[in-house]
Design a protein around this nucleic acid. Structure first.
Lengths: 206, 206
DNA sequence: GTCTATATTCCGATAGAC
DNA sequence: GTCTATCGGAATATAGAC
């Protein structure tokens, strides 16, 4: 029982790095072993197969990103704060793990069915409270008509896409690394403003 | 010379289907051959290797999506029309090839360097005219301060993300296929409105 | 628990008949 | 040009010594 826990943790950490970067199909067990400075056989000793090791990584990825972020949407706070909380939480997580969005998107695409097993308890994201707030705003004439699905899709798009498609966007526009990083950080502040602007009724209209 | 052109075209078409769905690492030459109803060896006869076959597919994907869409941004039309044109063109292409955004994003992430070779002539997307229009609007007090990079990132995010992350979003929210499809189609109309709302100065402010 | 060595499976690529 | 058969390498997985 030398370093059981420590080794298992090390493996998971390195597997995470490799899987996040290359995806399941692109990742090599050898690569993970090298990253951890251990032997390939040890990976199979702790986790039975590549599939199981991947499952562990994928589950960790989903539960790291989804629950904390979406819990922000179900609070009793006013809409403006709620959006700001969501964005702050999302960026905090993803700035530390920039490959997370792209990883989840791609693996979800590869095997859609695999998901419900992973979501803790298999529950869907709760949007009731958010929906209610939107409808109140619409009824009061503050907001234009919008469904909660579109709203959430917009919020998620503005947050996640610039991370997931970073290389594609940089390649197309020629923006350098430093500059793109700066743009990302600026978005943390601006997305809440934009989200409100998208649905706000213009002052002179009523 | 029985069916040279026809076979080559058939292979490309099937390779496209498989590569778009599974990516380079996940795709199997056997799978492509089966899809085309021919033998594996024939793939190597027409295209020397898996790499070359993939290159052909990837190039086609990029040139199908990037140039027509971004040419919309460099016209002399007013900003509102320009956005509408972009969205219309983007959705037309992507509705027919729903895996295109995710495919490009993922492959771009896998091999960022490979890109400049692919972009026709290696030129970046031109945003001069768009930038000028934004600055005019800002100077006139119609728009709030926004950089052309953020603006384009927003536009692209709102358009591409819902396609690229479709399975992830459906899994999280529990939205069904038909309903999600309907949401996508609704966005074609709404994104231009949202894009303006995001940057528009509120009437009562000045 | 951790290693080396090996078995096994899979896949891209080629040889050669038709 | 298209097929069948096969090679050769790579990657996952296992056996067995320490």
């Amino acid at each position: 029982m030398k370093e059981e826990r420590a080794t298992e943790e090390l493996i998971l950490q390195c597997a995470e790095k490799v899987f996040h970067r290359s995806g399941f199909d692109g990742a090599r067990m050898q690569e993970i072993a090298d990253e951890a400075g251990i032997n390939k056989a040890l990976l199979h000793y702790y986790f039975r197969s590549k599939d199981r090791l991947f499952d562990a990584v994928f589950s960790a990825a989903v539960s790291r990103l989804v629950p904390p972020v979406f819990s922000m949407l179900n609070t009793q706070k006013p809409l403006t704060e709620k959006i700001a909380d969501f964005v702050r939480q999302y960026f905090m997580t993803v700035m530390e793990h920039p490959f997370l969005p792209g990883f989840i998107i791609h693996e979800m695409h590869r095997n859609p069915a695999h998901f419900r097993t992973v979501m803790a308890g298999g529950r869907f994201v709760k949007l009731d409270r958010l929906q209610q707030q939107l409808q109140e705003g619409i009824a009061a004439g503050c907001f234009r008509e919008i469904s909660v699905e579109q709203f959430m899709l917009n919020l998620f798009s503005l947050c996640a896409f610039p991370f997931a498609a970073r290389n594609a966007m940089q390649a197309m526009t020629g923006i350098g690394d430093d500059c793109y990083q700066q743009i990302l950080e600026e978005r943390r502040r601006l997305i809440p403003v934009w989200m409100i602007g998208m649905i706000e009724n213009k002052g002179g209209k009523a």
